[in-house]
Simulated scan of single mutants.
Amino acid sequence: MRHENQMSQLSICIAEKLATLPSTPYKPYLFKINDALRRENSEAYEPEIVAIGPYHRGKVKLQMMEEHKLFYLQELLKRRNELSVDMYVIAMQELEQKARKG
């Protein structure tokens, strides 16, 4: 019973936090680190496990996670009974345009 009460309180707490979020999501954009800042501490801006976005695509040390990304995409498609990624590619292209304008 105590566990259920804690879970209920947690659910309420999360729901309250979700209710305070703005109704429109943040404007999408891609960050590019200023060269002077990168030179100051280049290691701070290099991904160690996973890269999100185009800047580090193709780096050997990140390839294992790229395979995981593809695996999870495949699982998403299976779960949604979808055969193609076309819809997602179109959506990402639209977001990319907005991000580049940002």
Rank of each mutant, 00 (worst) to 15 (best):
L83C: 11
E66V: 05
K61T: 09
Y72W: 14
E94C: 05
A15K: 06
N81A: 07
F31Y: 14
C13F: 11
V85W: 03
L77E: 00
E66F: 02
H68E: 15
Q97P: 01
A36C: 06
R80N: 11
E66S: 04
M65A: 11
L30D: 04
E82Q: 08
P25V: 05
E16D: 12
P25N: 08
L95Q: 01
D86T: 13
C13N: 11
I14N: 02
K101W: 07
L62C: 01
N34E: 09
L70D: 08
A15Y: 04
K27G: 05
L73T: 08
S8R: 15
M87I: 06
R39T: 15
P25E: 03
N81T: 07
Y55C: 07
V50N: 08
M92T: 02
Y45L: 00
E67I: 12
K61H: 15
D86K: 10
Y72M: 06
M92R: 00
L18G: 06
S23T: 12
P47K: 00
R80A: 11
I12E: 14
D35P: 07
I49W: 10
D86A: 14
K69E: 09
N34S: 09
R57F: 11
S42W: 10
L18S: 05
S23L: 09
E67D: 12
K69P: 01
R100H: 01
E40Q: 15
Y88E: 03
I49D: 12
L83W: 10
A19L: 09
P25D: 06
S42V: 11
K78T: 09
E40A: 13
K78P: 00
S23M: 09
E16K: 15
N34P: 02
P28I: 00
I14E: 02
K61N: 14
C13W: 09
D86R: 11
F71R: 09
I14S: 03
D86N: 12
T24E: 12
S84K: 06
P54W: 05
D35I: 08
M64H: 11
V85P: 02
E40S: 14
S84I: 01
S8W: 10
A19R: 12
S11L: 10
P28C: 00
H68A: 15
V85L: 06
D86M: 11
Y72I: 10
H56K: 04
M65H: 04
K27H: 13
K69V: 12
L83F: 11
R57M: 07
R79Q: 10
V89W: 03
P25L: 06
Q74C: 12
P47C: 00
E96K: 03
